[in-house]
C-alpha cells in the first residue's frame, strides 16, 4: 500500500495561545514495500508525522494519501477504521499498553476489535507469537508475569496479528540491551521481507537507519531537511552533525581517517566491512600489504 504525504502542515492547538507549528510543507512518498527511516532531533516533527500515517492526526494543510484514501483537514472522514486496520503502529514502550488477563486475549483484542472472528484471531495470535520469537506456551500466561523483553514482543505480536500492510515503528528498541535490540531489529527486517510490508522506522539510531532502511528522511524543525538512500544521506555528514544529529560510527570514523590521511575514499561506507576494505586498499597502495 502506497502512502504519500503532500505538502503537509500540522499546527497543534490552532487559535489558542499555545498554537504551535509542528510540520511545514512536508512531502514524502512511501511506495509499497519501502523500508523508510525517519530521523531527526527531539522535537523535529518525527512523532507528528507518525501520527499522520494512520490518521490519528489530520493535516491542517495539505493531504495524506493512504492507499486509496485521502485524509485532509476539510473532509469529514468516514472509514478511518479501514486505514487503521492496514497501518499498524508500534508505539514507544508498547508493553505499557498490555492489559488483558492472558497473552492470547491481549493479542486477539486488536483483530477482534476490527471484526475478526475469535477462532481466526486465535489462529493469528499463535502465528504472531512465533513470529516474534516466543513459544506458544506463553499464550496462556499473564502478560504481567513476563520479562520486559518478552512483554515488548507480545505487544508487537498484537500489532502483527492485525495483519497490517504497513508497520510503523517508533523507537522500537528503546530500553533494550544490545542483544535484544539486534534481535528485534532483525525480526522486523525479516517480517518486512517475508510479508512484503512497508516499514517506517522512527529512530535516533543512525546505525539502524543505515543498516536496515532503503530510504532515509531527515527532519529538522518540522521540515524535511534531506531525503535519500543511506549512502546519499551520510555522504555529507557535516550538515547532519551541525543539526545535532549523529552519523553512524562507521561514517564518523571514515571522516576522521580521511581528514588525517588527506585522502578521499571511493565511497561513503555504511558497514564495517566496506570501511575495512577501503582501509585495506589504502595500505596496499603504500606497499605494506599485498
Amino acid at each position: 500500500m502506497d502512502i504519500s504525504l503532500q505538502q503537509v502542515e500540522y499546527r497543534y492547538q490552532v487559535n489558542s495561545p499555545f498554537e504551535h507549528l509542528a510540520l511545514e510543507d512536508v512531502s514524502i512518498d512511501i511506495p509499497s514495500g519501502t523500508y523508510l527511516a525517519i530521523i531527526g532531533h527531539t522535537g523535529s516533527g518525527k512523532s507528528t508525522i507518525l501520527q499522520h500515517l494512520n490518521a490519528i492526526l489530520k493535516p491542517t494543510k495539505g493531504k495524506v494519501i493512504i492507499g486509496d484514501q485521502e485524509v485532509t483537514n476539510a473532509k469529514k472522514q468516514k472509514n478511518l477504521k479501514s486505514i487503521r486496520k492496514k497501518v499498524g503502529i508500534v508505539f514507544q514502550f508498547p508493553e505499557h499498553q498490555l492489559f488483558e488477563e492472558t497473552v492470547e486475549k491481549d493479542i486477539c483484542f486488536g483483530p477482534m476489535n476490527f471484526g475478526v472472528s475469535e477462532s481466526e484471531a486465535k489462529r493469528r495470535a499463535r502465528e504472531a507469537i512465533l513470529q516474534v520469537g516466543l513459544s506458544e506456551e506463553i499464550l496462556a500466561k499473564s502478560p504481567f508475569d513476563l520479562s520486559g523483553g518478552q512483554m515488548r514482543r507480545v505487544a508487537i505480536a498484537g500489532v502483527l496479528a492485525m495483519e497490517p500492510d504497513v508497520i510503523v515503528l517508533d523507537e522500537p528498541t528503546a530500553g533494550l540491551d544490545p542483544r535484544g535490540r539486534k534481535e528485534i531489529m532483525d525480526m522486523f527486517y525479516r517480517l518486512h521481507k517475508d510479508r512484503n510490508l512497508s516499514t517506517i522506522l522512527v529512530t535516533h539510531s543512525m546505525e539502524d537507519a543505515a543498516l536496515y532502511a532503503d530510504q532515509i528522511v531527515v527532519m529538522h524543525q518540522g521540515k524535511v531537511f534531506k531525503k535519500g538512500s543511506p549512502r546519499e544521506i551520510f555522504q555529507s555528514p557535516v550538515g547532519l552533525m551541525e543539526l545535532g544529529l549523529d552519523v553512524p560510527e562507521v561514517v564518523r570514523f571514515q571522516n576522521k581517517l580521511e581528514d588525517t590521511f588527506h585522502v578521499k575514499f571511493s565511497k561513503t561506507c555504511v558497514t564495517l566491512e566496506e570501511l575495512t576494505e577501503e582501509i585495506h586498499r589504502l595500505f596496499k597502495k603504500v606497499g605494506e600489504l599485498t
Binding site: 544490545p178 542483544r179 535484544g180 570514523f253 575495512t276 605494506e288 600489504l289
Partner: peptide, 21 residues
C-alpha cells in the same frame, strides 16, 4: 552476556584480521 563491543574495538579487530598492523 547480551552486551556489545564498542565500535573502535570492533574496527580494530576487523582490521587486524585483514592483516593491517
Amino acid at each position: 552476556l547480551g552486551l556489545d563491543i564498542p565500535f573502535p574495538v570492533k574496527m580494530s579487530k576487523l582490521l587486524k584480521s585483514k592483516g593491517i598492523p
